[in-house]
Design a protein around this nucleic acid. Structure first.
Length: 362
DNA sequence: AATACGGGGGC
DNA sequence: GCCCCAGTATT
């Protein structure tokens, strides 16, 4: 670790606070109560301010207080969330509101640990809410803070591992003046968003350049280090949805040391490169050599599906069926399959004894 | 440690 | 069109 001293750390902390004073970013949830803080922080998880803003406005209009949010049905909350993505955030937010109103008598948690114990609140959000709304001296560590710290101190630690993240958390904590936690957390995040930007940061006009290790060594573009990318290969999943005259289909259970262990799926052949339809058919005939089926019919039924999202949807469907717990093909009544839609990627229609899978794009 | 969740933005 | 994004829960 590069040399650093408490005096230097507090100087950097003060400079960030000064910068924040000179570069205010007024947002509607600033300086409001814990409810508005909670709303904004959940909405802003993985979401840009510009995208989240209209949703924040919608929520404070529809649900002005935490009591209104707790009283609302989950359906109403999800509807207000529509289009924002990561919908479990909405469910968690709703549950948190009910917990606070019903279990905590309307008293908001105040400490970092208390917030952290709620589902949907992780280390970042717990630090953000407890510091913004209650002055808890806990440093936030989000993507902006990570970038700023990385350039300032160029620590030899991998942010994307649990141990490395701890190094960054401690760096941030050391900079935080305990009596100005809220302002400091705002300051360092805004500094990352506005000054110490991912691309083309304005280093010439940066009031931290004297303290910035990356700048001093002229290696700012090298920081923060990119997440080491594990070599990704394409996997092509070809599903077959066979249906016989009696309205039965086949499914299989995944085995082996791979994703989705033990989960059920439509019969699958996997290839490492894309394959023409005729060749896929041969692969399936090979796989099903013991099964007597009508090639002419089935050839029209299978579809080549490349997205793993489809697999995910498949096991949701198939898990709902009561199946024997052993490996191999199972016969299932096609008419017993529930009427379902693959979320976002594929719609499934049941027509006569055939299933058609259609890729759709939203 | 790896994976899923979901939109929008950038190349 | 494809790749990326960095918070949280789950496995």
């Amino acid at each position: 670790m590069k040399s650093s001293s408490p005096a230097r750390e507090s100087e950097i902390g003060q400079l960030l606070l000064d910068w924040h004073q000179d570069h205010p970013r007024p947002l509607p949830w600033k300086g409001k109560g814990p409810y508005e803080t909670l709303l904004s922080e959940i909405i802003l998880q993985q979401t840009r301010v510009e995208q989240g803003l209209p949703y924040y406005q919608r929520f404070v209009t529809l649900f002005p207080t935490i009591n209104d949010l707790a009283k609302a049905s989950e359906d109403e909350v999800l509807h207000a969330w529509q289009g924002l993505g990561y919908y479990s955030r909405a469910r968690n937010l709703h549950r948190i509101a009910r917990t606070i109103v019903e279990d905590l008598d309307g008293a908001f948690p105040q400490t970092y640990e208390a917030w952290l114990s709620l589902k949907g609140i992780g280390p970042y959000t717990a630090a953000a809410i407890s510091s913004f709304a209650f002055g808890e001296p806990k440093a936030v560590l989000d993507g902006n803070v990570y970038r700023v710290l990385s350039r300032l101190f160029t620590p030899n630690a991998d942010f994307f591992s649990s141990g490395g993240r701890k190094v960054y958390q401690e760096l941030a904590q050391k900079l935080l003046p305990t009596d100005q936690a809220a302002s400091f957390n705002q300051a360092i995040m805004n500094f990352g968003a506005m000054q110490c930007t991912p691309k083309q940061p304005d280093c010439d006009n940066c009031l931290l350049k004297m303290h910035c290790q990356a700048y001093q060594r002229s290696v700012v573009p090298m920081y923060p280090p990119a997440k080491q990318t594990i070599l990704k290969r394409h996997r092509y999943f070809h599903y077959l949805v066979p249906v016989d005259q009696s309205g039965m289909t086949w499914i299989e259970q995944r085995t082996g040391n791979d994703i989705w262990q033990q989960l059920y799926q439509f019969p699958l052949v996997e290839t490492l490169s894309s394959v023409h339809s005729a060749d896929i058919q041969k692969l399936f005939l090979n796989k099903f050599q013991l099964v007597d089926w009508n090639t002419e019919n089935t050839s029209k039924i299978y579809k080549q599906i490349l997205s793993h999202q489809v697999i995910h949807a498949c096991f949701h469907l198939l898990n709902g069926l009561d199946l024997p717990q052993h490996t191999g093909f199972e016969r299932v009544k096609i008419k017993n399959l529930p009427n379902f839609a693959f979320p976002k990627v594929v719609h499934c229609y049941l027509m006569d004894y055939s299933i058609y899978l259609n890729a759709i794009h939203q």
